[in-house]
Design a protein around this nucleic acid. Structure first.
Length: 269
DNA sequence: CCATGAACCTGGTCGC
DNA sequence: TGCGACCAGGTTCATG
């Protein structure tokens, strides 16, 4: 489900409930949800620790407990939200944590989502790339990185060890705005298009955050709110409709095993 | 170093 | 209505 704007929205929506609270119990319905720790570890390392902060790093939601961090990755269909009660009839609740008199639920129909326990954020930083809203992510950085390798543009933008936060939707949108074909080799893209790509990445992510993300099917935050950026998409899911710039039909192709949407005229190879 | 395909799962949609 | 094929906001691992 989620790319950077959706994860950012979910993070903010649970933050107000959780900051300063303590988790008192953990119930796990789908065992694999806990990727690198057990319920016993919860009792000894997480339980009753005060939640210091909650923030996003890449597509991870990070719950900072000072001594350790609990990181949540929603993968495709994960939803994380606070509810005053547990409904035992509700399906797909992979796990939930209790705090105060409320619950932090993790609902995940496809069961790909995971919880991670680490001693510090370094474990994530080690394998994640640059944050697109950081000052280090500037035109110069992007130009030199793209020129230093020869990768398919879409595959490279999806690579979380390169730049974090982009997924299938925002990669297609950013490449469209910068008129780059997703199969272009990174070292063959012109400087002017790379500059445009830099601003397009920031633009699509920022504008989507303002809209609360993009809901195609599963994604919600605070249990039931949907993101409205779907209304602003130019190419994602728009195959067989007309390009807003040149009136050519948008087509859907396969790149890096992902459905990929382009205007064949605006984004020539 | 780079690309591809499979695997992990469930549910929705489309065509026959 | 039913059934099979295919698709889905992600990541990781094995294989050329």
């Amino acid at each position: 489900m989620p790319e950077l704007p959706e994860v950012e929205t979910v993070t903010n929506s649970i933050k107000k409930h959780l900051k300063g609270k303590k988790f008192t119990s953990l119930v796990v319905n789908w065992k694999k949800t806990l990727h690198n720790f057990t319920s016993l570890d919860f009792s000894s390392k997480i339980k009753n620790l005060k939640i210091k902060n909650i923030y996003r790093r890449g597509k991870f939601i990070v719950i900072d407990l000072d001594k350790v961090i609990l990181a949540v990755h929603l993968r495709m269909t994960g939803k994380l939200y606070v509810m005053p009660e547990i409904d035992p009839k509700q399906k797909h609740i992979s796990a939930y944590l209790s705090f105060s008199d409320k619950y932090l639920l993790f609902e995940d129909s496809r069961k790909f989502g995971r919880f991670y326990l680490y001693e510090s954020i370094d474990s994530l930083d080690d394998r994640l790339g640059i944050e697109p809203f950081s000052k280090e992510f500037d035109q110069k950085w992007l130009i030199s990185k793209l020129k230093s390798k020869s990768r398919q543009m879409k595959q490279l933008l999806l690579d979380q060890s390169f730049v974090v936060g982009l997924g299938n939707i925002y990669t297609d949108e950013a490449l469209y705005l910068s008129k780059i074909h997703p199969l272009s080799k990174s070292d063959e893209v012109s400087i002017s298009k790379i500059k445009k790509l830099h601003s397009s990445i920031i633009k699509v992510l920022k504008e989507s955050i303002i809209e609360g993300g993009t809901t195609i099917r599963d994604y919600t935050y605070d249990y039931s709110y949907v993101g409205n950026y779907a209304l602003k998409l130019n190419v994602y899911g728009k195959q067989d409709t007309i390009c807003p710039k040149c009136k050519t039909l948008i087509i859907k192709i396969k790149v890096a095993q992902r459905g990929t949407h382009i205007c064949p005229k605006c984004q020539p190879l």
